[in-house]
């Protein structure tokens, strides 16, 4: 389905597609409404909502922390001037961050 959509979108790329985001938003709303109804009418999920919320909190926290750690690794490599220059990595902070006066 995704591949079909990608192909259709590419073929229609010169057409007007302003309505697309609206259609996507409307379908997301409908699906979340349906998810809500499904959750609300399911006693087992409603009874476990606090546990599902806790699971969500733990996953969200760990996912966020680990991506921050990954960013810190990148940051320290940039800061330390990439001593492992073997791969030609000479990224510097200024390449990631456009300084205001540099524009």
């Amino acid at each position: 389905m995704m591949a079909l959509g990608l192909a259709a979108g590419y073929l229609l790329r010169y057409r007007r597609t302003e309505w697309l985001p609206k259609a996507v938003t409307a379908m997301v709303w409908l699906l979340l409404l349906l998810l809500g109804v499904e959750v609300g009418s399911n006693a087992m999920i409603m009874g476990n909502l606090h546990r599902l919320g806790l699971d969500a909190l733990i996953i969200a926290a760990l996912a966020t922390i680990f991506s921050i750690v990954a960013s810190a690794v990148l940051w320290h490599r940039l800061k330390s001037g990439s001593p492992d220059a073997g791969n030609g990595n000479t990224t510097s902070e200024s390449e990631l961050c456009e300084k205001e006066d540099g524009r």
Partner: peptide, 11 residues
């Protein structure tokens, strides 16, 4: 939805 998401990426 998937089709339209694909379409917006493709276009």
């Amino acid at each position: 939805l998937i089709f339209f998401v694909g379409m917006s990426i493709g276009s």
